[in-house]
């Protein structure tokens, strides 16, 4: 594990709920419990993977980590300070530390503004002179491997991959230490994805960045993330070093996810847990099952699973899983 001085960002017990349709009287009819106590620690230079299906809360978590939404409970800590408690989420300090890259570059770039105009916005905040700004724009484009002449082009004339590079350059303009990458390549073709991922890996080592990589693509996660967390219904149900998660998944949900991954070769096929067939769908966060929230879909469900939420059971080398199966007898 990393020493405390290496921590760049950490979260403790984050909770988030959204009100469902209100009645005529203005009362909330129910709550979508999207995050139910999520804690994580991001070390310097690390790629922290957040995997899960839609409805798992991974994007909601990403928005909180990026300072976009305030959580209902829990803390986000940056350099020992409570970001939301001290109202730092909109401060320049926070924006210069944590930036976000959105999923679809077609909607995260203003269609009426050229690349150069888009990249100049953060530079104006830094109060750079005009000449310095255009030099920095060229530098940023160079950083994401785009020709400086792209500064004059509108998003409509760029390919998907080029647009995502521009979005990345914008996120880098304030020299952040952390990038929250929300499905950064899922809107792109696979041949382009490979290029963007290689670029992200190069930038990490060149600039000493840390990433929180949010993705539903487990194969991508396997090859990119240093540590992987699997989310289900607003909780991290299993986490650990990436190779351990993929070679020895302990939580039945992780096993189910892995079994469902489409693969290209028989070698990869052999890595998939065979005994867990994909069953059912993730329930709505407005009706979270009692006990272990995965128990209705779990092939190994026991009576205890519907009564009690399982504890996080350490599996060694920083891996843990929230599952009653791994609880030593006599403790449950």
């Amino acid at each position: 594990m990393s020493s405390p001085s290496d921590l760049v960002l950490s979260a403790e017990g984050l909770q988030q709920s959204f009100a469902v349709a209100r009645s005529v009287a203005g009362r909330t009819k129910g709550w979508l419990r999207v995050l139910r106590g999520v804690s994580l620690e991001l070390a310097r230079g690390e790629i922290f993977g957040l995997a899960g299906e839609s409805g798992s809360g991974k994007s909601t978590l990403g928005r909180i980590l990026a300072g976009i939404d305030r959580p209902l409970g829990g803390r986000l800590l940056l350099g020992g300070r409570d970001v939301f408690g001290d109202r730092l989420e909109n401060s320049l300090l926070f924006k210069r530390t944590v930036q976000m890259v959105f999923q679809d570059p077609s909607s995260s770039l203003n269609p009426r503004r050229t690349t150069g105009q888009t990249l100049e916005v953060p530079l104006q905040v830094l109060r750079l002179a005009r000449g310095q700004r255009s030099a920095r724009v060229a530098e940023l484009l160079d950083l994401v491997e785009l020709d400086p002449r792209y500064a004059l082009q509108y998003p409509s004339t760029l390919s998907g991959g080029q647009k995502q590079r521009v979005a990345l350059a914008r996120a880098l303009a304030l020299n952040p230490q952390v990038l929250i990458l929300d499905e950064p390549t899922s809107a792109l073709d696979v041949s382009v994805q490979a290029k963007i991922i290689k670029l992200l890996l190069r930038l990490r080592s060149q600039l000493g960045l840390s990433y929180v990589l949010i993705s539903h693509d487990l194969s991508l996660m396997r090859n990119v993330a240093d540590r992987t967390s699997v989310m289900y219904l607003g909780r991290i149900v299993e986490a650990g070093p990436t190779p351990r998660i993929f070679q020895g998944p302990q939580h039945p949900y992780t096993q189910m996810l892995l079994a469902a991954v489409p693969t290209l070769t028989p070698d990869e096929e052999a890595l998939k847990p065979a005994k867990v067939q994909p069953v059912g769908e993730i329930p709505s966060p407005s009706r979270i099952p009692s006990g272990c929230s995965f128990h209705p879909r779990c092939p190994f469900a026991m009576p205890v699973c519907s009564d009690q939420a399982p504890p996080a059971v350490p599996k060694g080398e920083g891996q843990f899983a929230e599952c009653h199966l791994g609880v030593p007898a006599g403790r449950a």
């Binding site: 490979a194 090859n223 993929f246 070698d267």
Partner: peptide, 14 residues
Amino acid sequence: SVPRLDGSGFGEGI
């Protein structure tokens, strides 16, 4: 270009 589940990495894309 396709990332592999065995962690063997992936190529440069096209």
